[in-house]
């Protein structure tokens, strides 16, 4: 059992640190000086309206989009200074769950999960791959779908398989892009439970991009509110709910009423 000092050190270890991040697309300024920190073992939800730049933010984190200005440090590495090989080494430690699930539609569930594993880990036997696939599918509760094609799965099942595909590489950080969008309330609840379960079982730190207040409330330790290209306020759900900021109040009240 770790002592209080060791626990404090771990809990305060920053896994993602972003400062002064700017990103524009043509004349449209999307991110205007973002400062952000994610601590080890923490789940943080990024709330904001559609088109506010939430997805752009996590795509910058994994190097899919290059920022115009600012510093992005992930697991002690500055993303824009990495060579392609170093960036790939970093990406192996990050799981990215896409809004659209982004499953390879010409491959079945087994092949979808085995693909990142076989491409990234050399010398695995068929039995090792089978075990890893089964373990990941068990973690998301869809072991019986192993031979199905993505087109045969429901929206919620696709999201789960997408998460299982990222878990197969045992990531340290999980990035969820709108994990509950387009799902009914019950399936959304199941996805929220899965996000919490992944945090516990895989000891991950997560950024959850969402516009769903319930998802943010049920899955995050902290909430960051992205408004007009900046984080207006960061805090627990209760702190955000009681915020005096008019825009935040409006966002929360509207979402909870509707």
């Amino acid at each position: 059992m770790m002592n209080e000092q060791e626990y404090y050190k771990i809990i305060n270890e920053t896994v993602i640190s972003i400062s002064g991040l700017n990103k524009s697309f043509g004349d449209l300024e999307v991110l205007k000086g973002i400062d952000f920190e994610l601590l080890k073992g923490e789940n943080i939800a990024v709330l904001g309206k559609s088109g506010s730049g939430k997805s752009v933010l996590i795509k910058i984190m994994v190097g899919l989009i290059k920022p115009d200005k600012g510093e992005v440090i992930i697991l002690n590495q500055q993303v824009d200074k990495l060579t392609p090989k170093e960036l790939n080494d970093l990406r192996r430690r990050i799981g990215f769950s896409f809004q659209s699930s982004a499953l390879y539609d010409s491959r079945n569930v087994y092949e979808n999960l085995a693909f990142p594993l076989t491409m990234n880990v050399k010398g695995l036997s068929k039995a090792d791959i089978n075990n890893a696939v089964e373990e990941a599918l068990e973690a998301v509760g869809l072991k019986d779908k192993i031979n199905q094609m993505p087109s045969d799965l429901s929206g919620g099942q696709r999201k789960r398989i997408g998460i299982a595909r990222t878990l197969i590489l045992k990531p340290e950080i999980m990035l969820y892009d709108e994990p509950t969008s387009g799902l009914d309330p019950i399936t959304s609840g199941e996805i929220n439970d899965l996000i919490n379960q992944v945090q516990k079982s895989y000891n991950t730190s997560s950024v959850i991009i969402t516009h769903d207040i319930q998802c943010a409330k049920n899955t995050s330790n902290r909430i960051a509110m992205l408004l007009d290209g900046k984080f207006e306020q960061t805090g627990t759900f209760q702190e955000m709910f009681e915020s005096k900021d008019e825009d935040i109040k409006k966002y929360f009240n509207y979402n909870l009423i509707h």
């Binding site: 795509k59 990406r91 896409f98 659209s100 982004a102 491409m119 990222t166 590489l169």
Partner: peptide
């Protein structure tokens, strides 16, 4: 357009 290429990229596959 269905982000499968991005999914490959973030899985450290070129």
């Amino acid at each position: 357009v269905t982000e499968q290429i991005d999914a490959m990229e973030v899985s450290a596959i070129n």
